[in-house]
Design a protein around this nucleic acid. Structure first.
Lengths: 120, 120, 120, 120
DNA sequence: GTGGTCTAGACCACC
DNA sequence: GTGGTCTAGACCACG
């Protein structure tokens, strides 16, 4: 499978699925025109409600990351890999920037923040 | 005032208040045995409902960051500054570690991650 | 139902609910992974406001006695029965010890205290 | 002094004072017609607000445990010792009975309850 | 004045 | 359907 779920995360399950698929596409784990798992299969694999998967897939279609092949399933769009790579970068850039802002506003010194980052 | 609220954040307002007070205590903005703003005052200042502040203050009492002086208000606990500094560090350490884990699992290369971090 | 409320007690209703659920879990009335009554159901059964139940349930989550199954309800944590049994014992041990201390400090003789206890 | 205060107790301070005086009278620590400490003195000794002491003393007057000697202070009523002994007994009987009821309703077995009591 | 409890009801996200 | 957040306001105990 392409990703795992964190049920304790505040990020909703369906959003974790959306990102999981996008990141898999960005990383080349699923190629353009290749089918993604069926709603039923993925729901079984992840042990979650099919409605949740369906909602994630709807979002992916809205984002034009996948498109419906009638009677077959959902396939990765041709230009999706590039688009997903951009989105992936943006997601993590935004997140790091937010991290820094919050850390500074909390009263942590630049030194302490550096300390945290360097412990990577 | 010790902090401002981000009404667009997924982090609930009461949790933002909890952290705001903890960070203020960690940074020495409020000393042990000093009173924190009254429920009504803070609610007025932040332009939110007093109950929301009350809920945050309840959490702070549960965490033993403040204690009730009956009929007087809530005061910072003697050992709270140290505790809050530790918690603050943990919050941001965890958050950065999570950021790294997610970035790696998304298929981003170490190089790309470094790139994001260095843009600070 | 697992318990009843004493509206005349100084113990707040939400705290009575917390204890009621804990004691039910301790006694095996609700098994691990089993769902506890929904906020709305319990509020209706006890004829109180749903928010009061919600507040109790929040406390139970903070105590890790139950965990949220998103969109499904709250389920008893795996190790909760053991934990609840311990807490139950502690609650009553503390209370009896406090009773004894207070009785002694009030000037009651050991004989008089024994007298009270034996009338059980 | 006749008693100490527990600031963490849910029992209000003024009620703790009322009981402290009553128990002292019951135990013979203060004899009939003897003066109890002045509001100001007791407040200073206990490091609390004089209003709180005043409220307790008002209750004691209402209960006819003490009476005002104009221009002198509050003195213990002649029949107070007997009355206080009775009230003291009732307080602890009620409290023990409540303890037993609660313990039983919590699902503790008679054996476990006996165990707690015998550890006195 | 202080915080604490409870009610009532709106709105939201999630499944 | 589920719980979670927030608002609004009443009432109480305490100092």
């Amino acid at each position: 499978m392409f990703f795992h779920l964190d049920f304790t995360s505040p990020l909703p399950i369906y959003e974790q699925i959306v990102r999981g698929i996008k990141f898999a596409v960005a990383a080349g784990g699923i190629a353009p025109n290749e089918l993604i798992p069926s709603v039923r299969d993925l729901a079984r694999d992840l042990a979650i409600n099919p409605n949740t998967v369906a909602r994630a897939y709807r979002t992916l279609q809205d984002d034009a990351v996948v498109f419906a092949k009638r009677g077959t399933g959902l396939a990765v769009a041709p230009n999706a890999p590039q688009k997903c790579r951009i989105q992936r970068l943006e997601i993590f850039q935004t997140r790091f920037r937010q991290f820094l802002d919050d850390a500074r506003r909390s009263g942590l010194s630049e030194l302490e923040i550096d300390e945290i980052v360097k412990q990577e």
